[in-house]
Design a protein around this nucleic acid. Structure first.
Lengths: 196, 196
DNA sequence: GTCTATAATTAGATAGAC
DNA sequence: GTCTATCTAATTATAGAC
């Protein structure tokens, strides 16, 4: 992927971002060097600093944009009237969104501890906001008497862990289709909160 | 934690291991330096190499011992006759074991990609063996007609993700006791596979 | 906008004194 | 068994040429 000297500003920026995302997802932030990213893009290391002030900003921007996109995508989803319907919609959405962006999701879940403290705080706010999406669905379902479970916070975290875990084993083109995977997870979650 | 020169072989070995475990759990393998570990123990960096041939072996031994202990501890558990009882026992065991060793669990789940290929293969074997513990319980329960779910492999992975996720939010001395946490998770899992 | 060259720091690992 | 000193290689980031 060697490249001649020349101007490629309009393509290099996104390529830096894409290379960083792929490499960090595979090896982890601390294990990836700026030289590796540059080699993947096909430039020398000095050129990277036209597109990011430093390595930390590369990580922070990936995570922030991912979380913002996640929240925005959920806000754009249709919103069923009943709590069970909203819960099913959330499960489908969460799995679909995560399967579309395995690298970004992997980074969002693994690299929190490599954020500078001030960056960590900003991402935490977005994470909490997303957790409260599910918490609100479960809470209103319990209040309406259509969902049954013991502890709201525990149940929220348990369901999120279970759904996010899909990126650990799902393979595109494998035994289970995406739609079937969404279906099975949704059914299991609904049974787990007594809405079967 | 400064230390004078002198011989402390019997205590230094375990202290190196403990320091590595704590630091790697907090910061990640790639981000921890041998100098940091030495400082935590209270020795100079050269002294570490009396207790480990290199940094990679430190990580591998932590993960291998953890997985071996996990399998051995499960083997020592009482084994209920019925599948639903075994599933409940597994949930209690998995959560209890994980809450007892948050650092080791964190490493076992986060640092797989930092293992050398040959070390990775060895740990993978142990991981698969543990996954098959749950898979066997679920499979026999379905065959016996007491559990209901759609896909054995997916269900196994989903339950493991959900249970392991407890280390992400549980705090000792917090709102929920350990026993209550085990109870709520177990109930939810049993409902999820139609054994409520 | 990219390159080459380099500064300043840090890493893992080893040698030899005590 | 630990220390000090050091080797070699790699790191992030910057400066200045083109």
């Amino acid at each position: 992927m060697a490249r001649k000297t020349g101007s490629h500003a309009q393509t290099t920026g996104p390529r830096v971002r894409a290379a960083a995302e792929a490499l960090i997802a595979r090896q982890g932030y601390a294990a990836v060097s700026m030289r590796q990213i540059a080699a993947e893009v096909g430039v020398q290391v000095g050129a990277l600093y036209r597109y990011t002030p430093d390595k930390q900003s590369l990580l922070f921007n990936l995570m922030q944009d991912h979380m913002a996109e996640l929240l925005q995508a959920w806000a754009a989803e249709p919103r069923p009237q009943d709590a069970a319907g909203r819960l099913r919609a959330f499960c489908r959405f969460h799995i679909g969104f995560h399967l579309d962006r395995p690298d970004a999701v992997f980074i969002a879940n693994m690299e929190l501890r490599n954020l500078d403290p001030e960056n960590f705080d900003k991402i935490e706010v977005l994470r909490r906001r997303y957790e409260s999406v599910l918490e609100d669905i479960l809470g209103s379902g319990k209040a309406a008497g259509v969902l049954t479970f013991d502890d709201l916070r525990l149940t929220t975290m348990a369901i999120l862990s279970m759904l996010t875990g899909v990126i650990g084993w799902y393979r595109e083109g494998g035994r289970l289709s995406r739609a079937r995977t969404q279906q099975i997870y949704s059914d299991m979650v609904l049974r787990a909160v007594g809405a079967a």
